[in-house]
Nucleic acid binder design. Structure first.
Lengths: 339, 339
DNA sequence: GTGAAAGCGCTAACAC
DNA sequence: GTGTTAGCGCTTTCAC
C-alpha cells in the first residue's frame, strides 16, 4: 500500500524515472537494469498507484455502465459480458442502476465524471437529455447498448428490434393466425420498434392493424402483462395469438390464458422476445426471439475502448440480427377453434 | 473537465485553500466568501477531481463487489441492492465477475487495489485463500455477503442456510414424507450449509440419512440438476420428495419428473431455495425458502461503509432468517402412491 | 541509457 | 478568516 516507485528506485539504485520507464515500456533501458528492476518489483509485490498515473493524464481504466435495473436478467447479461470483455482488456466497470430516473442518471454521471472514468455505456435508454448532450459535447467516450439514437453522433449496438418484431409476427402469420394481439412496453426504445415490426408484418400480409388488439403497458411485470392479456382475451372477438414484446410480458399472457382456461398452443399461440432463461422453464415452453446478447456486450465494449484509446471518431451503429426460436407455445391455427 | 480549484479561486479572488475549505465544509469561512464561492462553483459547474483528493489520502468513494456470475439472477439482486444503498451514500460500485476462478479473483483484487478502492464485498465464496488473507492482513475494509467464514476476522451477512435447509426439510417431513432426496451444489458455502440443515431435520425426525438420496453436482444448471434428479427418481426405491438446494436445482428436478411422467405434487413433492422469480413461473409453482436479499445487500454495504469511515474494528456476523414459501409443488404424501 | 525537475489537482499544516 | 507552502505518487520533457 505504501510502497512507491521511489522505494523501488532506491532499492535498484536508479531513479524513479527509470522505474517508470520500465513499467510502461517506454524509452531505452538496458536489459540489465530492466531485469533488475522487474525482479525487485516482483519481489516487493509493488503495484503502481493508478490514481497517480491517472492524474498525469493517463486513463483510469474504468468505465461506467448505466442500466435501468441491475436485477433484470436481460440487463444483468449485458453487464456480465461487458464486464467480461473489459476485464480481458484491463478495464473495470462500475455499475449504475438508474431506475429510469433522470435525477439518478444525472447524479451518476456527475459523480463518475468527477472520478474521471474513461467512458460510459448506456443501456436500454436514457431520459435525461441535457445530461446526455453535455456528455456528447464534452466528447467523453460514449456508447449505447440495446438502443439506437440515429440523430445523435453516438456509437451504438442493438438487436434489430424492428426486424425481431417482424419475424415474430410473421411466424404467427405463417401458422395461419390473423387476429394477433400484442402487448408492448411503454417508454423503452425497444418498446417502440418491436410493435413497428409487428405492424409492418401485418400490413405486408394485407391485414389491417386492429387497435383493439394493441395494448401498451407501463407496468412491465408478469402481473401487469397478465392484466393486459386478460383484457385482450376477454374481448368479444379474442385474438388467436399474442406477441409479448418481451418474455416477461409473454409469460404474463400465458398466466392469463391459464387462468381463463384457454389452452396453449391449441387455442392460443404466444410468442415472446429476448429468449431469456425463463422461456425454457414456463409451461408450455415459450417461443421467442433470440438476441445475441453476448456479442452485443462485447461489441459495445469494443466500440467504447476504441474511442478511449484511439481517440477514434468513427461512430458506428451496429444492428445484430435476431433469431426465431420455436418452442411449444406457438402452433398452427386450429380452424375449428378459431371461429 | 479542465476547470480546477484554482480557476474558481482566481475568479473569486481568494486562494485555492479557501475554496477547498468551502467544498469540504472545513475551517472557518465568512458567510460572504462562502456564498460567493458556491455561487461561482454553481455557475461554472465546477466539479472537484476525486482522483486528486484521493491522492491526498481521502477515499475514492468506490467499492468493489466480487460475485461468481453477474448473470445469475440471485447475484444480480445482491448487486442491485448494494449499488442502490451505495448510491445513497455517494459510493460507486465496480462489479467483478470471478467465474469462481482463483486467477480471476486475484487479478481483480490486484487491479482494484491499484485503483485504491475503499473496500471489497465478496459474494457467495472466494477460492483464492492467499489473496484473501493478504487482504485481511492489509486491513483493507472487507465484508462477505451470502456466506460466513467464522474463523476469519471478517464481517459477513448471510441468510441462515443451515436453518433454511432445516425448514425446507421439515416442511416436507410435516407433509408425511420420509424418503426425501436432496440435490446440492458443490463448492459453494451455501452448498454445504443447506444439506447440513437437511440432515439435521431428518435426524431430529428419527430418520437415517440415506446416502443414495443425496446427490451433489458440480453443474448447477437446470440441465445438470435434471440429470441428478433422473438418477434419484430411477432409484429402485425412489424418494417421494426432493429438496433442491437452490431454485435452479429444484426446477431441474421438476423437469426430470415431467420427463418421467411423475406427477407433482401428487407423486412427488419438490421444494427449492432462494425464492427466485422463476418459482412463480414454473408449473407447478415452486415452493421455496425465501432469503431477504434486499436487507442482506443493504446490511453488507452498511457494514463495509462503517469499516471504511470509522475505521471501525468490530466484525459483525449477521444471519438473516429464511422464510418458508409454500406454493404448489409440495403436498401431503399420498399413502397409496408412496408404496 | 539514465536522471533532475516540474507538475497533474487537490488538501493539510501552519502561518498571518 | 484566509493564504503560503509542501507534497500525495506518478509521468514527462529535456539535459547529460
Amino acid at each position: 500500500m505504501k510502497l512507491t516507485i521511489y522505494d523501488i528506485a532506491r532499492e535498484a539504485g536508479v531513479s524513479a524515472t527509470t522505474v517508470s520507464k520500465v513499467i510502461n515500456n517506454k524509452g531505452r533501458i538496458s536489459e540489465k537494469t530492466r531485469k533488475k528492476i522487474t525482479a525487485i518489483i516482483d519481489k516487493r509485490h509493488y503495484q503502481p498507484n493508478v490514481l497517480a498515473s491517472a492524474m498525469k493524464g493517463k486513463s483510469t481504466y474504468t468505465i461506467a455502465l448505466l442500466i435501468p435495473d441491475a436485477a433484470n436478467p436481460i440487463y444483468a447479461q449485458y453487464l456480465k459480458y461487458i464486464e467480461e470483455y473489459g476485464q480481458e482488456l484491463g478495464f473495470s466497470v462500475v455499475m449504475c442502476s438508474t431506475g429510469s430516473d433522470p435525477k439518478k442518471e444525472a447524479k451518476h454521471i456527475t459523480l463518475l465524471k468527477q472520478k474521471r472514468v474513461d467512458g460510459f455505456i448506456i443501456a436500454s435508454f436514457f431520459k435525461n437529455e441535457p445530461v446526455l448532450r453535455q456528455l456528447i459535447e464534452e466528447e467523453i467516450p460514449l456508447v449505447f447498448i440495446a438502443f439506437h439514437r440515429p440523430e445523435l453522433p453516438v456509437g451504438s449496438v442493438a438487436g434489430d428490434d424492428y426486424l425481431g418484431g417482424y419475424v415474430a409476427t410473421e411466424h404467427l402469420l405463417s401458422l395461419g393466425h390473423c387476429r394477433i394481439g400484442i402487448i408492448a412496453e411503454e417508454g423503452t426504445a425497444s418498446g417502440a420498434e418491436r410493435p413497428r415490426g409487428y405492424e409492418k408484418a401485418l400490413i405486408n400480409a394485407g391485414i389491417e392493424v386492429d387497435k383493439n388488439l394493441v395494448i401498451t403497458t407501463t407496468d412491465p411485470t408478469i402481473e401487469g402483462a397478465q392484466l393486459c392479456a386478460r383484457e385482450l382475451l376477454t374481448n368479444r372477438q379474442r385474438p388467436t395469438a399474442i406477441f409479448g414484446c418481451n418474455d416477461i410480458l409473454a409469460i404474463g399472457a400465458i398466466m392469463a390464458a391459464k387462468e381463463l382456461g384457454i389452452k396453449i398452443p391449441d387455442e392460443l399461440s404466444i410468442i415472446g422476445f429476448d429468449n431469456a432463461v425463463m422461456c425454457k422453464v414456463v409451461e408450455p415452453q415459450l417461443s421467442s426471439i433470440d438476441i445475441p446478447i453476448h456479442e452485443m456486450g462485447r461489441k459495445a465494449m469494443g466500440l467504447l475502448i476504441q474511442q478511449i484509446e484511439q481517440k477514434d471518431n468513427t461512430r458506428q451503429r451496429i444492428s445484430l440480427l435476431p433469431e426465431l426460436v420455436i418452442r411449444q407455445s406457438t402452433a398452427r391455427l386450429n380452424e375449428r377453434e378459431s371461429i
